[in-house]
């Protein structure tokens, strides 16, 4: 479980997250909404442990352990993984190598890449000249190989063409153990009980909600979590009247 308590974060001199309380229980997926610059990416980066996001107050617990000041790689080892919106290009490091690093050589990169429509850039330098869609697929490829327990997605559907949006939606759904399947051995209720993966997904378009069920929606506004409610309900409100209503709620 992820448990965030009164988290305050500064980036440079600017206070960007203010008194955040958030709890994601095993098996839960939350959708994070918010206008540009509200601090959504900052929240994900802080959970991942990026040092430029300085925690000035509050705590982050994961699986019962205080990870507030834990380095990025140790968080990764504990089971936190992230799909980036704009990951860096690393020349000379191939996508295949990234998959091997993520999976600690436990998966066959080729087979996995074929599943996720990534075969054509497996031998290319990671993110070098990738299209928007290729970046997202490559991020999902790495996350799948990493097999994390808490998955952070920063706008996984932005820049993805229609052809691949289904693939991306279904892959995320699968990663979060949310794909729909009738299992002769288990009832839906039993399957639900066994769901352990946690997700926190930033979305602008809400398209992702067409492919994925989610338990909760959160609205981040100006560094403050102002609302926690049904994600579809939040999305409908934002689609109709924008974030105006969220401000009204916050006041």
């Amino acid at each position: 479980m992820l448990h965030i308590e009164d988290l305050q974060v500064k980036l440079g001199d600017k206070e960007i997250l203010k008194h955040i309380d958030l709890e994601i229980n095993p098996g839960e997926t939350h959708i994070l909404f918010g206008p540009n610059g509200s601090g959504k990416t900052s929240l994900l980066m802080t959970i991942m442990g990026y040092p430029q996001y300085k925690v000035t107050g509050g705590k982050i617990f994961f699986k019962g352990e205080d990870i507030t000041h834990m380095p990025v790689n140790e968080r990764a080892k504990m089971g936190i993984g992230m799909s980036y919106q704009r990951p860096p290009t690393i020349h000379g490091v191939r996508t295949r190598q990234m998959v091997e690093i993520c999976a600690k050589n436990k998966v066959d990169p080729e087979a996995l890449a074929a599943e996720l429509n990534c075969s054509e850039f497996l031998e290319r330098d990671i993110n070098a000249g990738f299209s928007g869609g290729e970046i997202k697929r490559s991020e999902l490829l790495q996350l799948t190989a990493q097999d994390s327990d808490l998955l952070l997605f920063d706008e996984p559907e932005s820049g993805v063409d229609l052809e691949n949006i289904v693939l991306i939606g279904n892959t995320i759904s699968h990663l979060l153990q949310r794909d729909f399947k009738i299992d002769p051995e288990k009832t839906q209720k039993e399957r639900l009980k066994e769901r352990t993966k946690m997700g926190l997904i930033i979305t602008h378009t809400g398209f992702i909600l067409d492919y994925l069920t989610a338990d909760k929606g959160q609205v981040l506004y100006n560094g403050v979590l102002v609302c926690a409610s049904n994600p579809r309900e939040i999305f409908r409100t934002i689609s109709k009247v924008g974030y105006e209503e969220c401000i009204r709620c916050a006041i």
């Binding site: 990764a76 020349h91 000379g92 790495q142």
Partner: peptide, 26 residues
């Protein structure tokens, strides 16, 4: 940013640095 990206995939800071250096030279 490149080091942290690799660290978030599970490499230590030293491993990440050496992976980048090797990539740079390849």
């Amino acid at each position: 940013e490149e080091i942290l990206y690799l660290m978030s995939r599970g490499l230590s800071e030293d491993e990440a640095t050496s992976t980048i250096v090797r990539g740079f030279l390849s």
